[in-house]
Design a protein around this nucleic acid. Structure first.
Length: 262
DNA sequence: ATGGTGGCGGTGCCA
């Protein structure tokens, strides 16, 4: 079972790249972030033609998440607990049957939080608190789950090309990192770091200033696994070539494989 | 060089 996350930065601008990647990478389940589309604007027919079921939590112009699956999926949440009436579209959660029991996949678009001296950063930290509570609730079921997405947090300085330049950035604040550690300390596994402890493993390169050509990257897209999922973690990958294609997203897909053979 | 790029929507905001 291959599970992937990708911040596509507009699904309409990225439809061609997305379909080509789906056909090549063949993930079983994908969570998308920043689709920047409402339900009616989503390229549903193109994705379904590639064999995927499509579930969307859309929003006009900004944010927006989706869950694509080759297998039947039951949507179990479209927002985190305590959502406001005008809650931005940043969370989707589905449940998929596997030979080893049900697998829950959550798709996360965590608030960026910049600039840090504003209510945007306060909102980010509060949102992380709600995500921690959701993870606690999921853990109580003692089932397999994967929380994938754009976390907008660099867990350590290893995950930043220039830590000094990002000292005042919301993605690298001690509060942001502490909240992510709280999530991990519940018993979740950062899938990429389970396999790669020493390499940066960037997942994002800014469009500006030639960041891609200079490998000025950040690792902010993560797959966090419950103990039951981590026990079956077989492989991970970061599809870096996607950043070098024409009309790329500024993020690349991150994926993991769980060994769920019957 | 106080910029730069990209997406949305049709002007600045967001990242």
């Amino acid at each position: 079972m291959k599970i992937a996350t990708w911040n596509v930065n507009s699904v309409r601008k990225r439809t061609g790249n997305l379909v080509a990647w789906l056909q090549n990478a063949k993930p079983d389940v994908v969570v998308l972030q920043e689709i920047k589309a409402q339900e009616a604007q989503f390229p549903r027919l193109e994705i379904e033609a590639a064999g995927y079921k499509v579930e969307i939590v859309g929003q006009k112009g900004f944010n927006g998440v989706a869950l694509l699956s080759l297998h039947p999926v039951e949507i179990t949440a479209r927002a985190l607990p305590d959502a406001e009436a005008d809650e931005p579209a940043r969370y989707i959660q589905g449940r998929i049957a596997t030979p080893k029991g049900p697998l829950t996949v959550g798709g996360i678009y965590l608030p960026n939080g910049n600039p840090i001296a504003t209510d945007k950063f306060t909102y980010k930290i509060a949102w992380m608190g709600r995500l921690i509570r959701q993870a606690k609730a999921l853990l109580q079921a003692e089932e397999m789950f994967v929380l994938g997405g754009d976390y907008n947090v660099c867990p350590t300085d290893l995950d930043v090309y220039d830590p000094k330049a990002f000292a005042n950035d919301a993605l690298c604040q001690p509060q942001s990192r502490a909240a992510l550690r709280t999530l991990l300390n519940l018993g979740l596994t950062d899938a990429v770091r389970a396999f790669h402890q020493d390499a940066p493993c960037y997942t994002y390169w800014d469009y500006q200033a030639g960041a891609w050509a200079k490998d000025w990257g950040l690792r902010i897209d993560h797959l966090l696994l419950s103990p039951q999922a981590a026990d079956r973690l077989a492989a991970v990958g970061i599809d870096k070539p996607e950043r070098g294609r024409p009309d790329p997203s500024d993020h690349v897909p991150v994926w993991c494989e769980l060994d769920l053979a019957a």
